[in-house]
Design a protein around this nucleic acid. Structure first.
Lengths: 184, 184
DNA sequence: CAAGTTGTTCATTTTATTTTGAACGAAGCC
DNA sequence: GGCTTCGTTCAAAATAAAATGAACAACTTG
C-alpha cells in the first residue's frame, strides 16, 4: 500500500480522497497549515542556533498524526538521506524525537516528543549544561593565571573575574529553576 | 603619547615598564589572562549565535580598565575597521557597550556594560522578544488556515496548534520572569 | 547465500555568514 | 579652503556551516 507523496502527514482519515475540485482545495489548505507549522519550527531552530533542516524535521513530525519512517521525511521535505539521518540523530540526542516500533515494518519510525517540558529539558541538558560546566573549569584556570600577575593589574583582573564568577553562578542556578518552571 | 601595542588593556598603572627579565614574564601573565577572558567571551558568543568578533570585542572591553577607542580594538584584536565598527554597533544595540566622552580626544571611546542584568535585559529585549511577538502573529494566521480545513484533519491540527499556543504563552511569561530574576 | 532494504558515514559541493578593505562623508584643525 | 582624522558602508573575498550523494555496513528475506 504505497502512500501518496502529497499526503503523508495525515494518513488515518483520508475522506477527501475522491477526485479534483473541492477535495483539492481542502487538501491544499491542510498542506498550507503543515507548511506554516514547519516554517514556525524552522524559525525556532534558527533562534536556537540549529540548522534549518532540524526545524523542518521536527516541525513535520510535530504535526504528523502517526510515526513516520525516514524515507517519508526525505521525500516530503526534499532533504537528502544523509541530512535526515544526521538530523534525526541530533533530535534524538536531546529527546525531541524518539523511535517507535511499527509491527510488520522493518523501518524505524519516528515521533516528535511534543511536550515542551521534555524537549526543553533535553535541550538544556545537552546543549546548555556542558557549556556551563566547561565555563567553571575555565574560570578556575583564569584564577590561577591571575595569581601569577603582579600589583596594579591584579586588582582589576580579580574584580573582573569575581564578576564573571557571579554571572556563572547565576546561570548555573537558573537551569534547574527553568526546568522546574517548565515541569508543570 | 603613543600607546605600546602590547599593553593597551591596562594603561593606568604601568609599573612593570622597565626592561626585559621579570617584567616581561609579568606582562605576559597579564596578557594570558586577557586572552583567556576574551576566549571565554568568544565561546559565549558562539553559544548565543553571534559572530566570534563580537565575543572578542566585548571580552576585550570587559577586562579593560579604561574606555578604549576603536583603533586600539582594531590593532589589539587584529580585526578590520569595518568589523570593529559593525561589531560595536551590534553591541551597542543591545546595551552591552556604550560610548564615553574622553576630554581632549576626538575619538569615540567604548566601555563594556559589565552588569549582567543590563546585558541580559538588552539581549532579551532585542534578540528574543521580537521572535516571540512574531510567533504570536504566525499562530493567529495558522488558526485561520485551520478553519479552512475539514473533518478528520482539523481535529489533529487544532490539537497541535493548541499545544503550540501553550508553549508560546509559557515562553512569553518566562521573559519578564527572567528579567526579574536577573534584576537583583 | 544472493538480492534487496535500511540506515550511517564522510568527502565533496553548495550555501550562508563573517570579515576585509577601499571608497566615502562628516567633522575638526591649521 | 585644503589636509587629516574618524567612523560608516558595502561589494568582494574568505571562512564556516550545512546538505548532498555515493560508498558502505548491517540486516532481512526468500
Amino acid at each position: 500500500m504505497a502512500r501518496a507523496v502529497t499526503q503523508p502527514v495525515t494518513n488515518g482519515t483520508q475522506t477527501a480522497e475522491k477526485a479534483g475540485g473541492v477535495e483539492t482545495i481542502i487538501r491544499s489548505a491542510h498542506d498550507r497549515v503543515v507548511r506554516e507549522i514547519v516554517d514556525l519550527f524552522v524559525r525556532l531552530a534558527e533562534v536556537a542556533g540549529l540548522p534549518r533542516s532540524i526545524g523542518e524535521l521536527y516541525g513535520y513530525l510535530y504535526v504528523a498524526d502517526a510515526p513516520l519512517p525516514m524515507d517519508v521525511l526525505t521525500s516530503e521535505l526534499g532533504l537528502s538521506k544523509g541530512a535526515v539521518s544526521q538530523g534525526l540523530r541530533l533530535l534524538r540526542s536531546f529527546g525531541a524525537v524518539r523511535t517507535v516500533y511499527v509491527p510488520g515494518d522493518r523501518r524505524d519510525h519516528f515521533v516528535a516528543e511534543r511536550e515542551l517540558k521534555k524537549l526543553a529539558a533535553g535541550y538544556l541538558n545537552e546543549k546548555v549544561l556542558p557549556h556551563i560546566r566547561r565555563g567553571d573549569e575555565r574560570l578556575k584556570e583564569i584564577r590561577a593565571l591571575i595569581a601569577q600577575t603582579n600589583g596594579g593589574d591584579r586588582k582589576i583582573l580579580q574584580e573582573r573575574l569575581q564578576r564573571l564568577i557571579r554571572w556563572h553562578q547565576r546561570a548555573a542556578k537558573l537551569i534547574p529553576l527553568l526546568l522546574r518552571l517548565l515541569q508543570q
